[in-house]
Amino acid sequence: MYQTPKTKIRSAMKMAWLIDTNPSLLLMLQHFNIDFRVSDLTVGQLCGKYDISENLFVSIANLYNGFDTKGHQPFTRKDLLQVIDFLQSSHDYYRSDKYPQISAYIRQLQEHHPVREMKLLEKFFNEYFAEVLEHLDYEDSIAFPYFITLLNNGKAEEKGKRYSSKEYGRHHTDIELKLQDLKNLLLKHIDIEDRLDLRRKLLFALYELEFDLYIHSLIEENILIPSGALIEKE
């Protein structure tokens, strides 16, 4: 999403003003399960109200504003459990909000343009979605429980299937590449006429999804995995 100039978020800033400068932060609030009626609260006050660590909230909010988390922030175990809640909530968003929306747009387009390419595009998307679901299920059933056990002071149990950060990374790359293919096909290659409104909605949804998936993988790769590795060492 086009956003310039960028604001580096600090805890004394008013949340409502920050949303005004970057509405994508609404999605972040949703993932944190924070109500959008933020009144006149500052970031710090909002975190206090919802019992979320300021350090964590500010780090993630800054990812949405285009600033990388600098070096390693000392996140506590409680923070990391909140990160997992956050990630799980974004999984719900992909599963029951974004993907059905995109899928519906493609179906509508296909109904208006019963050309073969559109049929194939629908097939491409469905296969892609199935892959994404598989990855989300992997995280929900293997990666997250692994981290939760670790964070609750337990030893990671030796179950049949073990979590591997390598596999984790490979899934992400795949998901990002196919999304890119889909955008390129729509923007450069497939001949579809008319229905600009529908195609704009579809593309916009793809960009929104891409942006949130990008933040999602940044959180996992820059916050969850390194902090998890530190705790493993303890």
Partner: peptide
């Protein structure tokens, strides 16, 4: 083409 996956390339080749 900007396309990497085999299924994406198939759609490209057909279109």
């Amino acid at each position: 083409t900007g396309i990497r996956s085999q299924s994406g390339l198939t759609i490209y080749a057909i279109s």
